[in-house]
Design a protein around this nucleic acid. Sequence first.
DNA 1: ACAGGTTCAGACCAATCGGTCAAATCATTT
DNA 2: AAATGATTTGACCGATTGGTCTGAACCTGT
Lengths: 207, 207
Amino acid sequence: MNLVRRRREEIRRAILDAAIREFAKNGLAGTSTQALAAAAGLTKAQLHYYISSKEELYEEALHFIVREWRTIFFVSAGSDDPAETIASYIERKIRHALDHPEVSRLFANEVARGAYVLSRHWGELKQAVEEASGVIEGWIAAGRIRPVDPLLFQMNMWAVTQHYAEYEAQARHLLGVPEGTPLDAERIIAEAQDMFLLRCGLTPPAR
Amino acid sequence: MNLVRRRREEIRRAILDAAIREFAKNGLAGTSTQALAAAAGLTKAQLHYYISSKEELYEEALHFIVREWRTIFFVSAGSDDPAETIASYIERKIRHALDHPEVSRLFANEVARGAYVLSRHWGELKQAVEEASGVIEGWIAAGRIRPVDPLLFQMNMWAVTQHYAEYEAQARHLLGVPEGTPLDAERIIAEAQDMFLLRCGLTPPAR
DNA sequence: ACAGGTTCAGACCAATCGGTCAAATCATTT
DNA sequence: AAATGATTTGACCGATTGGTCTGAACCTGT
């Protein structure tokens, strides 16, 4: 029945969530199937009924993230206005990093290791980045923004927005925010937006 | 004799290097003592003659990094000129990231995991950051730079400079730089300097 | 009520884990 | 040359690893 199918999909979803959380914490090699099973509320044998191997689950989790990001973050979004486009991208990206830090951390960990598993999905990533580069170059040619290295500009936006997920523990400590309460998203977004807009010779919104 | 002592220190240094490399790749849990020993050119038993446990070696590696960084990176360096201070910090930081990416990666990995091992050394880090915040606030008060969130400004510099170590694989792919050749340090430094100087309302050097 | 497949759990596998140990080897001092 | 300490070695420990297998429990359509 489809009640059975729904239950199965719930379990698979729980496994994927657990995988992202656990792999983000200790990496591929550092995460045991035991720990994965426990985090998903299953026994080890039960987990292996749903997945075929740890490596495959790892790759599936990464693939899931890439697919999700591809649909959420596209620099050339909506408006044609450079300031609005950049500001909106940064806001969305930082909010995502603060709300789902494990996702960003898993991705970062994989890239830091050399991204061998991820390399299969790099084609789409490069394509998206080059599309955005085109948009930015258009802005420069039209004199709408100060000249910028389009690739590095994007990488730096990525660096800053990801940072608050990867370095959450450090940010907490430096900003004096205890474990329970969330980081001040507005403050972080404002500073990041100001920075990248000023880099482009654009006027940041009054605060 | 001291030839014996030198030999012992050579081995300990080889172990530390191997530890940084291996821990950076697979994290604490994901790195076996076997792999550590092999990377240092020793047998497992021999390794345990020099270290007492994997955890302790891990902590030692982290402590080494913090100590090293404390002496290399001090934002309030040399000159009193904001532009020069910022530009020099960024250059030093990015060169270090490109030359010793494993170091940055190990640190990032530990922080991403929650920095439980590192937390002991966070006092000194916070102190250094707050000193720098004082310097920056002084610049703002004197009207020498555009108002900035001093803490977030520093965190963003950290984010960008670290990024080219942590995301080296991605940067290689996007910039089209094959595995053997180094990334273009000048290009990366220039873009980063422009960004942070413009954020402060300062004029970047002509290129 | 029963047959059919789906899902589950416990025992189990070889391999590897971090770490120890005693015996052997090496280098150095006397 | 004998004695002494510093190193190295391979065998070994119990625990845990990723993964399998079997048989029981559980649904579900008839």
